[in-house]
């Protein structure tokens, strides 16, 4: 990939990749590592994207795979305590902080489909394909995520 195209795509999608990695991995440093690895792979690839959506989906898939790979390694669990050196994300409102904390307390299998569906706007079928799960599993996981958030925050989730 040429440098100019890389710079354009990196600038446009870096936050998207980081958010998705962050939704999967509780450690911001791990999310940093995954983000860096995703863009290194992009830079070294020969792929030609058919459009912005093609690039976005490719980056999302690679991010999911890299995050999954990191989770499989026992490295971090045994050598870097996860509660050490955690930076604070800054929010404008306390309710945003509360929602973020509540989401990050969810199991990963609920957090990631929640993020892909509600933030990135992928359809259930697309989320299922990306995560290697059935659409019905993803539907169930979204419902359970919403239920758990409702209990934690004592607020209803509007149906959408």
């Amino acid at each position: 990939m040429d440098q100019a195209t890389f710079t354009l795509l990196a600038d446009r999608y870096m936050d998207m990749v980081f958010r998705l990695a962050r939704s999967w991995l509780r450690s911001p440093q791990d999310a940093d590592d995954v983000t860096q690895e995703v863009f290194l792979r992009l830079l070294r690839s020969d792929i030609r994207f058919e459009g912005d959506e093609h690039a976005r989906r490719w980056l999302a898939r690679v991010t999911v795979n890299e995050a999954r790979r990191l989770c499989r390694s026992p490295w971090r669990r045994r050598t870097v305590p996860l509660d050490e050196h955690q930076p604070e994300e800054k929010f404008n409102k306390e309710e945003q902080r509360a929602l973020f904390d509540a989401v990050m307390e969810l199991p990963g299998k609920y957090r990631v489909p929640l993020h892909l569906y509600y933030y990135e706007g992928y359809a259930v079928k697309e989320v299922a394909e990306m995560l290697g799960r059935s659409p019905s599993t993803v539907q169930t996981q979204l419902a359970r995520a919403r239920e758990q958030l409702k209990k934690k925050l004592k607020e209803d989730w509007s149906n959408d």
């Binding site: 994300e89 404008n92 309710e95 929602l99 973020f100 509600y118 989730w157 509007s158 959408d160």
Partner: peptide, 13 residues
Amino acid sequence: IDRNRYRETFSHI
């Protein structure tokens, strides 16, 4: 909680 609030929150990440 709705999609907009979720997006607003995570846009800070």
